[in-house]
Simulated assay, not measured.
Amino acid sequence: MSPSIPAPAWRKPLHHRHIATSGFARNDGLFDIEGQLQDISPDGTDLIFRTVPAGTPIHDLRIVLTVDRELVIRGARARIESGPTIYCPEIESAYAALSGMRIGPGFKREVKARLGGVQGCTHLTELVSVLATTAMQTIFALLRTERGSRRPADEQGPMPKPTLVNSCHTHRIDGEAVKVLWPEHRRGAAR
Protein backbone atom coordinates (compact mmCIF):
# COMPACT_ATOMS: atom_id res chain seq x y z
CA MET A 1 0.00 0.00 0.00
CA SER A 2 1.25 3.47 -0.90
CA PRO A 3 1.99 5.93 1.87
CA SER A 4 -0.71 8.57 2.31
CA ILE A 5 -0.09 12.20 1.57
CA PRO A 6 0.25 14.05 4.89
CA ALA A 7 -2.50 16.48 5.83
CA PRO A 8 -1.43 20.01 4.92
CA ALA A 9 -1.10 22.93 7.27
CA TRP A 10 -3.75 25.62 7.01
CA ARG A 11 -3.80 27.02 3.52
CA LYS A 12 -5.60 29.68 1.50
CA PRO A 13 -6.64 28.96 -2.09
CA LEU A 14 -5.02 31.35 -4.54
CA HIS A 15 -5.64 29.70 -7.92
CA HIS A 16 -7.73 26.90 -9.39
CA ARG A 17 -7.10 25.17 -12.70
CA HIS A 18 -9.90 22.95 -13.96
CA ILE A 19 -9.35 20.65 -16.92
CA ALA A 20 -12.20 18.51 -18.17
CA THR A 21 -12.17 16.25 -21.22
CA SER A 22 -14.66 13.87 -22.81
CA GLY A 23 -14.77 11.53 -25.80
CA PHE A 24 -17.88 10.98 -27.89
CA ALA A 25 -18.77 8.56 -30.71
CA ARG A 26 -20.41 10.34 -33.64
CA ASN A 27 -23.00 8.88 -35.97
CA ASP A 28 -20.59 9.21 -38.92
CA GLY A 29 -18.03 6.80 -37.42
CA LEU A 30 -15.71 9.53 -36.15
CA PHE A 31 -15.11 10.65 -32.56
CA ASP A 32 -15.18 14.11 -30.99
CA ILE A 33 -12.69 14.66 -28.22
CA GLU A 34 -13.61 17.79 -26.28
CA GLY A 35 -11.59 19.65 -23.70
CA GLN A 36 -11.96 22.70 -21.53
CA LEU A 37 -9.34 24.45 -19.41
CA GLN A 38 -10.28 27.12 -16.88
CA ASP A 39 -8.00 29.16 -14.63
CA ILE A 40 -9.90 30.85 -11.81
CA SER A 41 -8.75 33.17 -9.05
CA PRO A 42 -10.96 32.73 -5.96
CA ASP A 43 -10.36 36.35 -4.93
CA GLY A 44 -10.35 37.86 -8.42
CA THR A 45 -7.38 39.60 -9.93
CA ASP A 46 -6.43 42.81 -11.67
CA LEU A 47 -4.65 42.01 -14.92
CA ILE A 48 -2.97 44.51 -17.23
CA PHE A 49 -5.78 44.31 -19.79
CA ARG A 50 -8.80 43.59 -17.61
CA THR A 51 -10.08 43.05 -14.10
CA VAL A 52 -11.31 39.54 -13.38
CA PRO A 53 -13.94 39.27 -10.63
CA ALA A 54 -13.66 36.55 -7.97
CA GLY A 55 -14.70 33.15 -9.31
CA THR A 56 -14.62 34.30 -12.95
CA PRO A 57 -12.24 32.53 -15.36
CA ILE A 58 -9.02 34.25 -16.35
CA HIS A 59 -8.76 31.54 -19.00
CA ASP A 60 -11.73 29.62 -20.38
CA LEU A 61 -10.43 27.65 -23.35
CA ARG A 62 -12.06 24.91 -25.37
CA ILE A 63 -10.88 22.54 -28.09
CA VAL A 64 -12.67 19.84 -30.05
CA LEU A 65 -10.58 17.32 -31.98
CA THR A 66 -12.43 15.07 -34.42
CA VAL A 67 -10.50 11.80 -34.84
CA ASP A 68 -10.96 8.48 -36.62
CA ARG A 69 -10.38 4.98 -35.22
CA GLU A 70 -6.69 5.18 -36.10
CA LEU A 71 -6.41 8.40 -34.06
CA VAL A 72 -5.84 10.60 -37.09
CA ILE A 73 -7.16 14.09 -36.46
CA ARG A 74 -9.77 14.92 -39.10
CA GLY A 75 -10.60 18.37 -37.74
CA ALA A 76 -9.68 20.70 -34.89
CA ARG A 77 -11.54 23.70 -33.53
CA ALA A 78 -10.33 25.94 -30.72
CA ARG A 79 -12.26 28.63 -28.89
CA ILE A 80 -11.06 31.13 -26.32
CA GLU A 81 -14.14 32.15 -24.37
CA SER A 82 -12.04 34.18 -21.96
CA GLY A 83 -8.37 35.09 -21.88
CA PRO A 84 -6.19 37.62 -20.08
CA THR A 85 -6.23 39.94 -23.13
CA ILE A 86 -8.61 40.83 -25.93
CA TYR A 87 -5.93 39.59 -28.34
CA CYS A 88 -5.95 35.96 -27.20
CA PRO A 89 -8.75 34.76 -29.55
CA GLU A 90 -6.63 35.77 -32.58
CA ILE A 91 -4.82 32.40 -32.34
CA GLU A 92 -7.89 30.13 -32.41
CA SER A 93 -7.65 29.32 -36.14
CA ALA A 94 -4.02 28.17 -35.80
CA TYR A 95 -5.25 24.93 -34.20
CA ALA A 96 -6.57 23.76 -37.57
CA ALA A 97 -2.88 22.85 -38.11
CA LEU A 98 -3.56 19.72 -36.04
CA SER A 99 -5.64 18.24 -38.87
CA GLY A 100 -3.94 15.25 -40.45
CA MET A 101 -1.74 14.48 -37.44
CA ARG A 102 -1.88 11.03 -35.86
CA ILE A 103 -2.00 10.75 -32.08
CA GLY A 104 0.80 8.37 -31.13
CA PRO A 105 4.57 8.39 -30.63
CA GLY A 106 6.05 11.82 -31.34
CA PHE A 107 2.67 13.58 -31.20
CA LYS A 108 3.59 16.07 -28.46
CA ARG A 109 6.84 16.93 -30.23
CA GLU A 110 4.98 17.61 -33.49
CA VAL A 111 2.32 19.70 -31.72
CA LYS A 112 5.08 21.81 -30.19
CA ALA A 113 6.71 22.23 -33.63
CA ARG A 114 3.42 23.40 -35.14
CA LEU A 115 1.92 25.36 -32.24
CA GLY A 116 4.70 26.12 -29.77
CA GLY A 117 5.77 29.63 -28.82
CA VAL A 118 4.22 32.44 -30.83
CA GLN A 119 2.56 29.94 -33.19
CA GLY A 120 -0.06 29.08 -30.56
CA CYS A 121 -1.43 29.67 -27.08
CA THR A 122 0.53 28.04 -24.26
CA HIS A 123 -2.63 26.86 -22.51
CA LEU A 124 -4.46 25.59 -25.61
CA THR A 125 -1.36 23.68 -26.67
CA GLU A 126 -1.11 22.16 -23.18
CA LEU A 127 -4.77 21.13 -23.45
CA VAL A 128 -4.08 19.36 -26.78
CA SER A 129 -1.72 16.96 -24.95
CA VAL A 130 -4.44 16.13 -22.44
CA LEU A 131 -6.89 15.57 -25.30
CA ALA A 132 -4.48 13.10 -26.91
CA THR A 133 -4.72 10.88 -23.84
CA THR A 134 -8.51 11.25 -23.80
CA ALA A 135 -8.65 10.27 -27.49
CA MET A 136 -6.69 7.10 -26.75
CA GLN A 137 -8.94 6.26 -23.81
CA THR A 138 -12.00 6.84 -26.03
CA ILE A 139 -10.75 4.36 -28.64
CA PHE A 140 -9.80 1.88 -25.86
CA ALA A 141 -13.38 2.15 -24.55
CA LEU A 142 -14.71 1.40 -28.03
CA LEU A 143 -12.39 -1.60 -28.43
CA ARG A 144 -13.39 -2.96 -25.01
CA THR A 145 -17.04 -2.72 -26.03
CA GLU A 146 -16.36 -4.48 -29.34
CA ARG A 147 -14.18 -7.15 -27.72
CA GLY A 148 -16.68 -7.94 -24.99
CA SER A 149 -15.38 -10.41 -22.42
CA ARG A 150 -12.71 -11.94 -24.72
CA ARG A 151 -9.13 -11.48 -23.53
CA PRO A 152 -5.96 -11.50 -25.68
CA ALA A 153 -4.82 -14.77 -24.06
CA ASP A 154 -8.10 -16.44 -25.11
CA GLU A 155 -7.39 -15.95 -28.80
CA GLN A 156 -4.84 -17.37 -31.22
CA GLY A 157 -2.70 -15.89 -33.95
CA PRO A 158 -0.40 -12.91 -34.04
CA MET A 159 -1.60 -9.54 -32.84
CA PRO A 160 0.10 -6.19 -33.35
CA LYS A 161 2.05 -4.72 -30.49
CA PRO A 162 -0.43 -2.66 -28.40
CA THR A 163 0.32 1.04 -28.19
CA LEU A 164 0.45 0.78 -24.38
CA VAL A 165 3.60 -1.35 -24.50
CA ASN A 166 6.51 0.68 -23.05
CA SER A 167 4.26 3.70 -22.47
CA CYS A 168 4.79 3.65 -18.68
CA HIS A 169 6.28 1.58 -15.87
CA THR A 170 3.29 -0.76 -15.58
CA HIS A 171 3.22 -1.45 -19.32
CA ARG A 172 6.95 -2.06 -19.78
CA ILE A 173 7.74 -4.83 -22.25
CA ASP A 174 9.13 -7.12 -19.52
CA GLY A 175 6.36 -6.43 -16.98
CA GLU A 176 3.56 -8.65 -15.76
CA ALA A 177 0.82 -6.44 -17.25
CA VAL A 178 2.20 -6.83 -20.78
CA LYS A 179 2.21 -10.63 -20.39
CA VAL A 180 -1.59 -10.32 -20.11
CA LEU A 181 -2.04 -7.45 -22.58
CA TRP A 182 0.21 -8.94 -25.28
CA PRO A 183 0.76 -12.64 -24.50
CA GLU A 184 3.91 -14.31 -25.82
CA HIS A 185 1.90 -16.71 -28.01
CA ARG A 186 0.30 -13.71 -29.79
CA ARG A 187 3.44 -11.70 -30.51
CA GLY A 188 4.62 -13.47 -33.66
CA ALA A 189 7.20 -11.43 -35.58
CA ALA A 190 5.83 -8.09 -34.32
CA ARG A 191 8.07 -7.79 -31.28
Rank of each mutant, 00 (worst) to 15 (best):
G35S: 06
Q38H: 05
Q38E: 14
D39E: 12
I40H: 07
S41G: 12
T45C: 13
D46P: 01
R50W: 00
T51D: 08
V52G: 10
A54M: 02
G55F: 01
T56A: 15
P57F: 07
L61A: 07
R62K: 14
V64A: 12
V67R: 09
D68E: 12
R69I: 07
R69H: 13
V72D: 03
R77N: 03
R77L: 04
A78L: 03
A78R: 02
I80T: 09
E81V: 15
S82E: 08
S82P: 00
G83E: 02
C88N: 06
P89T: 05
E90Y: 08
A94T: 09
A96Y: 03
S99P: 01
S99G: 13
M101S: 02
M101T: 00
M101P: 01
I103C: 04
E110V: 09
V111K: 04
V111Y: 01
A113C: 05
R114T: 01
R114S: 01
G117L: 00
Q119D: 11
G120E: 02
T122H: 01
H123G: 10
T125E: 03
T125R: 12
T125Y: 00
L127S: 08
V128L: 02
S129L: 09
S129H: 14
S129I: 11
V130E: 11
V130W: 00
L131C: 10
T133S: 15
T134F: 05
T134M: 09
A135P: 03
A135Y: 10
M136I: 14
Q137K: 09
I139N: 06
E146S: 13
S149A: 15
R151S: 11
D154Q: 12
E155I: 06
M159H: 15
K161Q: 15
L164M: 13
H169V: 07
T170L: 14
R172T: 08
D174R: 00
G175L: 00
E176L: 11
E176I: 13
K179R: 15
K179S: 14
